[in-house]
Amino acid sequence: MTQGHEYFQSCLMPLPDKDLEGPSRLPGWTGRHLLSHLGHNARALARLAHWAATDEPTPMYPSTSARAEEIEAGAAWPVPRLRDFVVEEQNRLTHELDRIADDRWDAPVVTAQGRTVPAATIPWLRGREVWIHACDLPSGGDFRDFPDSFTDALIEDALDRRRGVQAVNIDVRATDRKTHGDDDIVTCVEGPAADLARWLTRGEESPRLRTGTGAPLPQLPPWL
């Protein structure tokens, strides 16, 4: 999580404020929307950390519409304020995580998607956000910069959701990793791990990806 935040900042800092006024790599979002989301996401996850530390139920958002409303409100702020906001809320999240006692890391909390997970999942949820969204900045990061261990975990996380919640019958084989895969899965996509992670989470195809049969890659619904 901390390394991902530092990577996000390394991609953000060189960008002029005017570039963040324009579109990000996420359809319909400016750079300001992206920064607003990252700051408010840290704030929301800090609520879960508080829940775990105190056993006081504090959901990520007070309503189903609150997430989108927070992002839109923050997107109207000046870019310098948004830059500071991301750092301040990351620091707040780290502080709240530090308050969780050893025997509370298994405490159940509920995500914005309604999943009940142990508090130990919170750093993963935040790490996922900062690493991936670094690649959504204008002229931002690259999945190939991610640590191998994080990329591999991200692939497994995305596959679990797509197979479980979305019932998408796919498997992958990373050609730059030890070969793995399930021959009983209908569609297997092969290619470099970074390209697989980008495709599974962003739906972005790469000429380095291919199916074992030569068929086109399946069209994936939004990941989250």
Rank of each mutant, 00 (worst) to 15 (best):
P16D: 11
F85H: 15
L35K: 07
G74E: 11
A53M: 06
L217S: 13
L15Q: 10
N169Q: 15
R32K: 15
L15Y: 10
D103P: 05
I100Q: 04
P62H: 08
G28L: 11
P57R: 09
G127W: 13
A66H: 13
G39F: 02
S63N: 04
R162Y: 13
H133N: 07
L82D: 11
R67T: 06
D142V: 03
H5K: 01
D182P: 03
T54N: 08
L154Y: 05
L217N: 11
A73K: 12
H180R: 13
R210Q: 12
P218S: 12
L97W: 02
A46C: 08
V86F: 03
I122R: 07
R83W: 11
G164V: 10
D102R: 12
W199V: 06
H133A: 07
R115C: 01
G203A: 12
S139Y: 06
R173F: 01
T58S: 12
S10A: 15
S149T: 14
A119C: 03
W29S: 04
H5W: 05
D148R: 11
H33W: 00
E190Y: 02
G39H: 05
L82E: 11
Q9V: 11
T58C: 12
P14I: 05
R32M: 06
T94Y: 10
P221Y: 13
S63M: 06
P123K: 01
H133S: 09
T30C: 06
R177T: 00
P218C: 09
R177V: 01
A44I: 06
P108G: 03
G31D: 08
D136M: 09
S149E: 15
A49K: 04
L35Y: 02
V168I: 15
Q219Y: 02
R163E: 13
E156F: 01
